[in-house]
Amino acid sequence: MSDKHIITSRPGFIRARNHGEKAISKGVIIQAVRRDGADWRYGLTATKKIGNAVTRNRVKRRLRVIAKQVLAPIAMSGVDYVLIGRATTATSSFDELVTEVKKSLRYLHRKLGEAEK
């Protein structure tokens, strides 16, 4: 997965928040929004609310691995995904997080598919 799949600017995150669909689970929140373009992108967020810098970095590392292993194979083209870490993201088992993300992505893909029609 190359760097071209990363949302690099604030407007991409804001657009996902304001105009996208959201799936909330215990360990992660995922926002997804359709956009013009053929490729998919992802962004990661971990706010100060979830802990100190060490905790936030651990959360971002875990989300980055999830994006590469789980999101990359099933991502819809033309969609931006924003993965938002929660306090439990750092402490949950990795298998739980993967299961939650897969379930959330199925839900979001269903919602985005309905929005197309």
Rank of each mutant, 00 (worst) to 15 (best):
A16Q: 02
T91R: 13
N52G: 12
V101I: 12
Q69C: 13
Q31T: 03
R86M: 02
K102P: 01
I84G: 07
E96F: 01
V82D: 03
A75T: 04
E96L: 13
K49W: 01
R15H: 12
I30K: 06
K117A: 13
E114P: 00
M76H: 10
T99Q: 14
R106D: 14
V33I: 06
K111P: 09
N57L: 14
A115Y: 01
S92C: 05
A16E: 02
R61I: 00
I84A: 04
H19N: 14
K22G: 07
R34A: 08
R86F: 05
R10T: 13
R86W: 01
I66Y: 04
K49M: 05
K26G: 00
D36E: 12
N18V: 12
V70Y: 03
K26H: 04
R61G: 05
V28M: 03
T47P: 14
A16F: 10
A72P: 04
Y81S: 10
T89K: 10
R56Y: 02
R58P: 01
G43A: 06
K48P: 08
G37V: 07
I14V: 15
G113H: 07
K60C: 00
G113E: 09
M76K: 15
A16Y: 07
A75M: 09
R106Q: 15
A38T: 10
I29K: 00
N57Y: 07
R64A: 15
D36P: 00
E96Q: 09
T47R: 08
A90E: 01
V70P: 11
T8N: 01
G113T: 09
A72N: 12
G27N: 06
I66E: 03
W40N: 04
Y42I: 03
K103H: 11
L112V: 05
D3R: 14
T99Y: 09
D80S: 10
E116T: 09
D95W: 00
V59E: 02
W40C: 07
I14E: 13
L44D: 11
L83D: 03
I24D: 14
T55S: 04
H5C: 04
I30W: 02
M76Y: 06
R110C: 02
F94H: 11
G20C: 07
W40K: 00
E100M: 08
G12W: 08
A67M: 12
S2C: 13
I66Q: 14
E21W: 12
D95S: 11
E100P: 10
T88K: 15
D80L: 02
R110V: 06
F94W: 11
T8D: 02
G20P: 03
G85T: 00
I6M: 13
T47I: 07
S93I: 04
I24T: 11
P73Q: 07
A38Y: 03
K68T: 08
R58D: 01
R106A: 13
G27E: 05
T8L: 14
K102M: 12
S92M: 15
K48E: 11
T47L: 10
S9A: 04
A87T: 09
P73W: 10
A16T: 06
V101P: 08
R17S: 07
H19D: 03
K4P: 00
V79A: 14
T91D: 14
I29T: 15
